[in-house]
Design a protein around this nucleic acid. Structure first.
Lengths: 167, 167
DNA sequence: ATAAACTTTCAAAAAATATTGAAAGTTTAA
DNA sequence: TTAAACTTTCAATATTTTTTGAAAGTTTAT
């Protein structure tokens, strides 16, 4: 396997994984392409490399910028815009974890909290609803907090400690 | 908010979250319904509660059984089949983490390993591809291992330790 | 102020995914 | 063995999501 094949394999695999995670194929592939590109790419180059339309490239590049994992880069002497991906994988993980937490977990936790706080009318089904949503609330909150801590501040201590157990 | 509203809110929120995670709406909603139901439900009851067709209920119940989070339950004196969800949230988390790891992370890790092992021809772009896929490989593997450890064996020790930091 | 170079927007089209419902299949009781 | 009770399958349909491409918008150079 040489460069071209490897690159295509990486891009398509990343795209497929993205799909499973609710990120559309084009967006995941654009990210993959920029991630392995040594230099920033223009929209034209992205379209060309991935065989996608101008509109698609434009919208998904903006999507990636909204996620905070792709930046516009100014190339001196060039009029058009160039794009580059965050290259530090740990920073990438930090951003993704944070954004997913904010966009998905947050709203869910709020509903779970709300539902688990309804008045107990004494019926079996109400009690079951309260009990289960309370448990779920606790689980989701704990998992979310762990994830955030892990990719954030206490990163080093926790990573080091956990790594001992993983070896 | 009383029972009916709370229940509907929980089911629809869980369904929406499922969608974001690549699980279809019906499947996530069936799970939510069974999860808060004090007793096992028949296919008929599931169809009725969620307003979905027989075929849809059948296929998605099977899907949930493939994930290992829903079981058939035999109700004495009844001919039809009844279904119940795994009720322990930590067990639920364990099963989901394990299955996602097996189905999604595994194949991705394999490709990353393969791509990062191509021969270095000395070119800048090949070197960047190797470097980036190696880093990504390491990150994904570490995250996956952490997740698995966390929901598995060393669960207690790690949870206790982390919880100190979360407080 | 003009026009060339470039980007964004968005309605329409295409593609992917989920759902239906009825026919085929299976199991159970008598 | 028959038929009723129930479940599964799958082609057709509906829905949702993604993509396109051309018109509208913006920026820059002169």
């Amino acid at each position: 396997m040489e460069y071209k094949e490897a690159k295509e394999k990486f891009i398509s695999t990343w795209g497929a994984l993205g799909t499973l995670w609710g990120i559309n194929k084009a967006m995941a592939q654009i990210h993959a392409l920029l991630f392995i590109s040594p230099d920033p790419l223009s929209m034209e180059e992205v379209m060309e490399e991935l065989g996608i339309s101008r509109g698609n490239a434009s919208m998904n590049l903006r999507g990636l910028m909204d996620w905070g994992i792709v930046y516009k880069v100014n190339v001196p002497g060039e009029r058009k815009e160039f794009f580059a991906s965050e290259k530090d994988v740990t920073e990438l993980a930090r951003i993704i974890a944070k954004e997913r937490s904010r966009r998905e977990i947050g709203p869910t936790v709020r509903v779970l909290k709300e539902v688990s706080s309804i008045e107990d009318d004494g019926s079996k089904k109400t009690q079951e609803l309260i009990k289960k949503t309370k448990e779920m609330h606790e689980l989701v909150e704990t998992a979310d907090a762990m994830l955030n801590r892990m990719v954030n501040q206490e990163q080093n201590w926790i990573t080091k400690t956990l790594v001992k157990f993983l070896k």
